[in-house]
């Protein structure tokens, strides 16, 4: 078990190296620092001096891989590759192109991101499981049919529409909650209520259909037939047998996305003015701040890999049939 986890973790590191090399190629060779400077300074006629100055200010004036002017290890470490890519493994993100410390920003913003993402996720899973169970309990009736129809319609609506209409109805029209913003203490609930509810509703259609399929697949199995044959009530079959077995894939799939919650939601945060990592990323994309985008790519894939390893562990914990060698 331990050796298996170790092996998976090592594989994760290997993948992180791949991600790192990939982003390095994407950001520094396909697209040279000169191009970045030109895009950032903007305007039609950018002088070479301005570009050089921009690069020196941000430390992009070094050679990419090998610094011939230094000797020894410095020849390798005093390069863009070492300073910008290798340092990421130590979670040293460096300064953004606008000169702020990325690591500090991330630490500041991870809290608000989680404050939105965690309740959205937890309530979302609960609501989805309830909706799916309801449809399965009343399967092959009008309730099931219209439930599925409603779910298909709901998943065909853009999440942007939910947000815009939700904000308009509850903030502009009914004035129940503030339209956007973020504050600590008890005000937090007021600010978070709407984004959380909208986040749950926007995903409900798609996820409910998915879970309904999982439950139905499970309820077609032999042990369910046995349970029915021995005279168990439908409730007992559904809650004691089907739910418990179908919870396995649900559990593992939720474990996989748990770490990604740290990244927050791009759209929610920017619509509701929550100072989390999602809105940080969007601002960086709009300001074409490549340093921040690179840092977030690295952070995102690192969290994804943590999720992968956690999934493997949760399989063995939750399902006694699975033994990992």
């Amino acid at each position: 078990m331990l050796s298996y986890i170790l092996r998976r973790a090592l594989y994760g590191v290997l993948i992180l190296i791949g991600v790192n090399l990939f982003t390095f190629v994407l950001f520094f060779t396909v697209n040279t620092p000169d191009d970045m400077a030109r895009l950032n300074i903007g305007g039609k006629r950018v002088t070479q001096e301005a570009i050089e100055k921009w690069k020196v200010e941000r430390g992009y004036d070094k050679p990419l891989l090998y610094n011939a002017r230094d000797d020894g290890l410095r020849a390798l470490s005093n390069t863009i590759f070492f300073e910008r890519s290798v340092q990421l493994f130590a979670l040293r993100f460096g300064a953004s192109d606008s000169g702020r410390d990325i690591g500090y920003e991330i630490r500041q913003r991870i809290g608000p991101s989680l404050a939105v993402a965690l309740p959205t996720f937890a309530l979302g899973v609960m609501a989805t499981v309830c909706a799916a169970l309801l449809m399965v309990f009343f399967r092959a009736t009008y309730l099931d049919f219209w439930g599925v129809t409603l779910a298909v319609v709901m998943m065909s609506i853009s999440s942007l529409f939910y947000i815009i209409v939700g904000q308009w109805t509850f903030s502009t029209l009914l004035r129940l909650v503030p339209i956007s913003g973020f504050a600590g203490g008890w005000d937090l609930f007021k600010f978070l209520a709407l984004p959380v509810v909208i986040g749950v509703v926007a995903r409900l259609g798609y996820d409910a259909l998915l879970y309904r399929t999982m439950f139905l697949e499970e309820s077609g199995k032999d042990y369910v037939r046995t349970a029915r044959a021995k005279g168990l009530s439908e409730q007992a079959v559904l809650f004691r047998h089907v739910l418990r077995n179908a919870a396995l894939p649900i559990l593992t799939s939720t474990v996989a996305v748990l770490p990604l919650l740290f990244l927050g939601s791009l759209i929610m945060e920017s619509f509701f003015g929550i100072p989390g990592l999602g809105s940080y990323t969007i601002d960086a994309i709009n300001a074409q701040d490549f340093a921040v985008v690179r840092a977030m790519v690295f952070l995102g894939s690192a969290l994804y890999i943590v999720g992968l390893v956690l999934t493997d562990i949760s399989y063995t914990v939750a399902d006694p049939r699975i033994r990992l060698a």
């Binding site: 990939f22 990244l263 995102g300």
Partner: peptide, 18 residues
């Protein structure tokens, strides 16, 4: 796995910036 480990919006954003 490398490709899918990168959050898709960020990957697309990076490519589109380029």
């Amino acid at each position: 796995t490398v490709l899918s480990s990168i959050p898709s919006v960020l990957l697309i954003a990076a490519c589109v910036l380029i």
